[in-house]
Design a protein around this nucleic acid. Structure first.
Lengths: 246, 246
DNA sequence: GGTCTAGAAATGGTACTACCAATTCTCATC
DNA sequence: GATGAGAATTGGTAGTACCATTTCTAGACC
């Protein structure tokens, strides 16, 4: 009789159920899910088991839960991969340099594609980003913020959500690892390199955009690697009370 | 008094705790975690709350749980991003074509790097992969399997774990979406294109490897897009009992 | 009629208990 | 020393209770 009773535990099954509900359109972004107690009885599982799944979805950013209100399905959530990525970095011991290397592999090509698809609107955003960098002042934490925004705009221009989302996460991880070190990068230097990228994109020259992006990231990697490499492991995770497990 | 009582709920705090424990080396891959009841009392949380976190970690592949045995911390887990990626595809409505496009952006560069780092060992694996393709026979499901293995080997050769992991996930997602359609791709055709890539890598010619990979993926994208584009949404999620939430 | 407010209801957050099923451990038995 | 039955351990699931926050509702008030 347990013909299809796989070895999967309830949580995995429930997860599959939610994927099914989303894919068939029963659940659409913005929709409010039934209350936990109600869902639990509908699905014939305990509230505790259901909550395991909902909590996971909440931390991945798939749903938002608010006490006294309810649970809502979110739409596109770039943060979905953020938590898993942190564990990946921790468990695989992925280094700052390796993250930068990944950018070096992907972003030049994305810059090239951005150059091919440049629109006045996006160019304006890039220009604005350059202006914001100048205003942020050297060493200011906002500079890195603006730097990454510049690159993310290029991602959008390249028009591929898969790469865009994945490397936004890489940026986020990098950002978590850098922070203070921002004062190391020279303001004028940074702006100069970014301006070159912008110019190439504005000209609609893919090859030059690729080369400029490559040069910029190679440069940045060299500047930042030394000072950051060491402190990666130490900075992950937010302390929480006593940590002894015994 | 609740000086540092952030708005984060317990699950998020516990998640941070585990990250902390991993990063400071208290928990290392392979380690066996204390029993749930024990951990719960140590951390002063209920077993239910703790289980929410452990279940999430288990589904991400960070830990493995076995009834009657215990919970173990896994090492490198390429599957960490798999579940989140599925939700990303569902929620963002990412298409087959877009996934292939992402490969088109990244894999040529990875092939080029593989050519620069070719070793006899890896070349042997690639050759073996080509042989396996021939043996698998046209239309066989194993062909796609072998196809993806070939590409993943190139990822390893390119020596960047970030890209390697991320695009293994892309492959996985693609694989979930293809399956049956494998009989569409001609065996000889596929092998011919892969052999060209292999040859370029063996010669250690990055530019040719890049071009061959680009040609192959462009070709594959064209062949597969039509037949797969439509059925993406329908195939996600494994049905599980009644799906009505009310 | 409209506004405000206090109480009720609904909802997610956490804790605790109980029991099941699978696994491992222990120790008597051969 | 090997074997096997039973006890202990462990994760899996269910159910209940209570709390804090938010929303809803109904009545008081202007």
């Amino acid at each position: 009789m347990p013909y299809r009773t796989r070895k999967k535990d309830l949580t995995a099954k429930l997860l599959a159920t939610f994927k099914q509900l989303i894919s068939e359109g029963t659940l659409v972004p913005g929709a409010r899910l039934p209350a936990e107690r109600e869902m639990a009885s509908s699905l014939k599982v305990s509230r505790g088991s259901l909550r395991q799944v909902l909590k996971m979805l909440e931390i991945m950013g798939v749903v938002s839960q608010r006490v006294g209100d309810g649970t809502y399905l979110n739409g596109a959530a770039p943060s979905i991969l953020a938590e898993p990525m942190e564990f990946l970095i921790l468990l695989d011991g992925i280094s700052f340099g390796e993250l930068m290397e990944a950018r070096l592999i992907v972003e030049p090509e994305l810059a090239a594609r951005a150059a091919s698809r440049a629109t006045p609107e996006y160019l304006a955003i890039l220009r604005q980003s350059l202006v914001s960098m100048k205003e942020s002042g050297a060493g200011h934490a906002g500079l890195i913020e603006e730097d990454l925004r510049f690159h993310r705009t290029i991602f959008q221009m390249a028009d591929n959500r898969v790469c865009s989302i994945m490397f936004s996460i890489v940026h986020q991880s990098l950002h978590n690892l850098m922070e203070i070190t921002s004062r190391m990068v020279g303001l004028d230097h940074t702006i100069k390199l970014h301006t070159r990228i912008y110019t190439a994109i504005r000209k609609g020259d893919p090859e030059e955009a690729r080369a400029r992006m490559f040069a910029h990231l190679t440069d940045a990697k060299g500047l930042l690697t030394r000072s950051n490499e060491a402190r990666i492991q130490a900075r992950m995770g937010d302390r929480f009370g006593t940590l002894s497990l015994r």
